[in-house]
Design a protein around this nucleic acid. Structure first.
Length: 584
RNA sequence: CGGGACGUAGCGCAGCCUGGUUUAGCGCGUUUGACUGGGGGUCAAAAGGUCGAGAGUUCGAAUCUCUCCGUCCCGACCA
């Protein structure tokens, strides 16, 4: 491709809206343009990259026996009513009516659509297992798109769905998918990518992993053990905290005027916050009050609590609701409370610690020496669970080592769905025994544009992206300096022709711009190999070449045999990514 | 949905507070020409604007008031 014809202007300055490296460089380099909040057009540069990522995705999905299909982005509401999600999912699902007034929606994920296919196309156990995948647009009406292509409303996703006759078969396939994902991210060039335990959220299902590209701008918080034995999303991460166990002392009421916060109470009584119990109130999906009790120095993890309560929604309760249940805000306590009027969840930290300071359920009074086992004889109305937010440095649940906190971009995820959708939507097969059974499903997603952005976050310098050869928009950037001179132009044209003949992907800067201008553009394009032709190099029948990741350093190479040499270097470099080709 | 900021040419900004010599400027980019030629060069000329939209105040509004829309940031939410 000749740069004089190539669409996508480089910008000297980034739009003010762009904050993260990937957002800035994607816009400055002319990879994409915003159309609306979280909605982008990919320009040729960006599209060339996503096509390469998509090609890798197809290869790896095919290698684990995936079959590509293409489902529509526009779906009838009734299909989602079958699974129950039409009403469950919130405003991220964009609903609208067609001209006949029929409920329609834009697909944000395709379980329903693929189940519709599976239940008609796969009637027999003999056909299973099967994995169907697609690379298709999704739409999620995000409340807050951000960071360029990292969090968008419309995006391309590779989503795959597997169908099995047994949990065992699903687990086996899940392992293959896991391996395929590891290969994919390696081939795409994501260097720091962790597979972590995650919350399956609205997807349902028991086991799931998220693949996180570690990057400071990532939205997800990860807790990782330094020895690599444990790695989990903050939403599910747990730790092995030690709890203070002592001989229980008698309950004692103490006057604590104007001490409505844990810090105030602890300071007033001369205690550590970890010697107190904190009451946190929420309102669940049905509007019922939730009383969460946790050790004073810890925070409630709402994602965990939501799961314990099986409540998709959870909001802080207002004081009126708390009072209505008979509790006193600021001094609330499980003691002297009618537990039928609310839901109670007690964190292990509060259930297992001895002699905590808790509220007395009376304004300006607390109780010393609360012991859960002793002081709440009727445990039937109380759930004890892990609802604590892990803190950096807390001990790893596996190794006991202090957990590190990392930020990550979720570039992919895999779920063992089980029969959630097949059961709800009557997706059954006839088994050997002649009985209809629901298929056991898994699902596997990767965001294409987000993966591209994540690569920039991990691989750039102050001048622009540094693309891995496997997904680079071009392999070679050929630049002619003093391009108006016949000898330079002719040498460039000849090289350009030869590179194309040999199948190299080459972008040829034939614009005749000044060196500084051309180099600055080249840095923003981030093409791995750069070849520079100028009167200076031609004087010795040479050209200059360098790898983008070298920075400004370069080497000379004789014109003779140049293209062959580049081809070899490219093959060698690609081979470094392709030990991923080994069978799992 | 809560908090904050912003909206003037493709991009970055000034002007607004204190309304009127503003025919709305500047830098980058774009077009034309010349000189240049190794890290966004110099000179000359040019094109490009419903000042986010609407209403109001005023003799007069980019500037003051109100409403709406849009965008970004923090939080909430997020298969």
């Amino acid at each position: 491709m000749r740069m004089s014809r190539f669409v996508g202007q480089r910008l000297r300055e980034a739009p003010r809206d762009a904050q993260t490296a990937s957002h800035i460089f994607l816009l400055r380099g002319g990879y994409c343009r915003a159309v609306s909040a979280g909605i982008y057009t990919l320009l040729p540069l960006g599209r060339r990259i996503t096509r390469k990522i998509e090609a890798i995705l197809r290869e790896e999905m095919d290698r684990i026996d995936g079959q590509e299909i293409l489902m529509p982005m526009v779906l009838p509401g009734e299909l989602w009513q079958e699974s129950g999600r039409y009403d469950q999912v919130g405003q991220e699902l964009l609903r609208f009516k067609d001209r006949n007034g029929k409920d329609m929606l834009l697909g944000m994920t395709h379980e329903e659509a693929v189940v519709q296919i599976a239940r008609t196309e796969l009637p027999s156990h003999k056909q299973l297992p099967v994995m169907l995948y697609q690379i298709q647009l999704k739409y999620r009406d995000e409340a807050r798109p951000r960071a360029g292509l990292i969090r968008v409303r419309e995006f391309t996703m590779k989503d795959g769905y597997s169908f099995h006759t047994s949990q065992e078969c699903l687990e086996k396939y899940y392992q293959r998918a896991y391996q395929a994902y590891a290969r994919i991210f390696k081939r795409i060039g994501l260097k720091h990518c962790l597979a972590i335990l995650s919350d399956s959220g609205m997807m349902g299902g028991a086991v799931s992993h998220e693949f996180m590209a570690i990057a400071d701008c990532g939205e997800d918080t990860i807790f990782a053990s330094p020895d690599g034995q444990y790695c989990a999303n903050r939403e599910v991460a747990c730790s092995k905290l030690a709890y203070v166990r002592e001989q229980p002392l008698p309950l004692e009421k103490v006057h604590t005027p104007n001490c409505t916060s844990i810090e105030e109470v602890a300071a007033f009584l001369g205690k550590q916050t970890s010697q107190t119990g904190k009451a946190v109130f929420y309102k669940d999906s049905e509007g019922k009050l939730v009383f969460a009790l946790i050790r004073g120095d810890l925070e409630v993890n709402e994602a965990k609590l939501r799961k314990v309560l099986q409540s998709p929604e959870l909001n802080f309760a207002d004081d009126d609701l708390i009072r209505a249940a008979g509790a006193v805000p600021g001094y609330a306590s499980l003691l002297d409370l009618d537990l039928d009027r609310l839901r109670v969840v007690v964190d292990h930290s509060a259930a297992q610690s001895s002699n905590l300071v808790v509220g007395a359920n009376q304004s300006d009074w607390h109780c010393l020496n609360f012991n859960f086992e002793r002081d709440l004889p009727d445990k039937s109305k109380v759930q004890v669970a892990d609802i604590a937010t892990v803190r950096p440095g807390d001990p790893c649940p596996v190794s006991g080592q202090p957990l590190q906190m990392l930020k990550g971009i979720e570039v992919g995820n895999i779920f063992q769905l089980g029969t959630k959708y097949s059961a709800a939507m009557n997706c059954t097969y006839l088994d050997q025994d002649g009985k209809a059974k629901p298929m056991i499903m898994g699902c596997y997603g990767i965001g294409v544009g987000r993966a591209m952005a994540a690569v920039i976050e991990q691989s750039h310098d102050e001048y622009g992206p540094i693309w891995p050869l496997t997904i680079a928009p071009f392999q070679v950037h050929l630049i002619g300096l003093n391009h108006s001179r016949d000898d330079v132009r002719e040498a460039c044209e000849q090289l350009y022709q030869e590179m194309q003949d040999r199948g190299l992907e080459v972008l040829y800067d034939d614009r005749g711009e000044k060196a500084g201008f051309a180099f600055a553009d080249a840095d923003l394009l981030g093409i791995p190999l750069r070849v520079i032709v100028s009167p200076k190099t031609l004087a010795s029948q040479e050209v200059e070449f360098k790898w983008r990741h070298w920075g400004k350093r370069s080497e000379m190479h004789s014109l003779n045999g140049l293209v062959e040499s580049l081809q070899k270097q490219i093959q060698a470099a690609l081979a470094e990514f392709s030990d991923a080709q080994d069978s799992p």
